[in-house]
Amino acid sequence: MGRHSRPDGRRPLRPTALTSVLAAGIVGLTAAAGLFTVHLEGTKRPSSDSVALAVPAAPAAPTVPAADPSPSPSPTPGAPEVVRQSAPDPGPTPQDPPTAPPDTPLGVTATAPDDTESRRVGALFSGAVAPGNHFCTASVIDSPGRNLILTAAHCLSAAAGTTFVPGYRDGRAPYGSWQVTRIYTADGWRADGDPDEDFAILAVAPSGGRQIEDAVGGNPLGTDASWTATARLYGYPAGAELPIRCTNTTSRQDTYQRRIDCPAFPGGTSGGPFVDTATGAVIGVIGGYQQGGDTDDTSYSAAFDHTVADLLARAG
């Protein structure tokens, strides 16, 4: 879920008018000072060899060749023992669940497979691209300039020092690191942190002479999708170094909020995309109501309608 955690591990409730005003004032002061705040998010953790032996053969007759096959020779010193079994696989670490097979049942969360779709999802970093430095999730979207990514608006308030790494896995950046240069948010979010507009489009600078969409492609932005669409949900938990994925049918939380029930989406997964399995379009991001939800097992998104479409047109 969303996912900036409080120090006690619980997520903030939906902001009241007073807290929204205070939050807006704090953001304004921070921006005026040329600073930015990245909310590092909390996370929950789930919490015999055998060797073939050679058997000596009976001596052959002096003048007649032995009729039985020759025994297997003893292993050559220094040669690998091809008959030795490897040690059992210890299995996944607690923070990295097993990779999701293509037919993962609905509502089951597992490590995302490394495929074309998952490579368009990545982690946002503050400072060096290294384990423990990522704080939110984003994904590449299709655009005329081929240089845009999508995340939750509550993830960051300024671009300086933020990089995006698509397909990030175990400390590696297989498709490069892309510097965030600009943030586009909707009017309602800028005015008072409206959770119904908790989405942001980020522009990233070229890397190695290429735009990010040239490197990994981009998902189309989907608007006005059915409330009961089936979606794949992606995210990078703050305490893990691999992306997770869960597929389930979404539903309507209220007038402008979509929800999905997927277990074990903790802090760090904010901004992760809802990818419509029928169209491949992104129809939401983890955010919105209670910044994505107040438990790890249900995630929310602000509804994608003309507001997010207008934002994409403005970002170009």
Rank of each mutant, 00 (worst) to 15 (best):
G193L: 08
G235L: 07
A240D: 07
A23F: 05
S299P: 04
D198N: 09
G209Q: 02
D89I: 07
H154G: 05
A200P: 05
A61P: 11
F265Y: 14
A231Y: 02
R252E: 11
P102H: 12
D296A: 10
A58P: 09
D294T: 15
N147K: 03
G91F: 07
F274D: 04
V83A: 14
L124H: 04
S118V: 03
G267V: 04
G78W: 11
P46Q: 10
S299I: 05
T279F: 03
Q95I: 11
A52F: 13
P263G: 07
D187Q: 08
L233A: 06
V83N: 14
G132Q: 06
A231F: 02
Q291V: 12
G218V: 06
D114Q: 13
P88K: 11
G268W: 06
T137Q: 02
V55D: 12
P131N: 10
A54V: 13
D198V: 09
G267R: 02
R252A: 13
D114P: 00
E117H: 05
S177N: 02
A57V: 13
A158F: 07
T185A: 13
A32W: 12
D194R: 11
P15K: 02
D296W: 02
T99N: 02
Y300T: 04
A123F: 04
P12Q: 10
Y256F: 13
V204E: 01
V180F: 04
P88M: 06
I26L: 10
A110I: 00
G91Y: 08
V121N: 01
A128D: 14
I141E: 06
A200M: 15
L312E: 08
R10M: 11
V108N: 07
R258D: 02
V55A: 11
E197F: 10
A79F: 08
V38K: 02
P56A: 14
F304E: 03
T249H: 00
G161Q: 06
W227L: 06
T43W: 15
T269N: 15
P69Y: 13
R84K: 15
D142V: 06
V38C: 01
P62W: 10
L13H: 06
P206I: 09
A57S: 15
F199A: 03
A229L: 01
S72H: 07
S5F: 09
C262E: 06
A130Q: 11
A173M: 03
T30N: 15
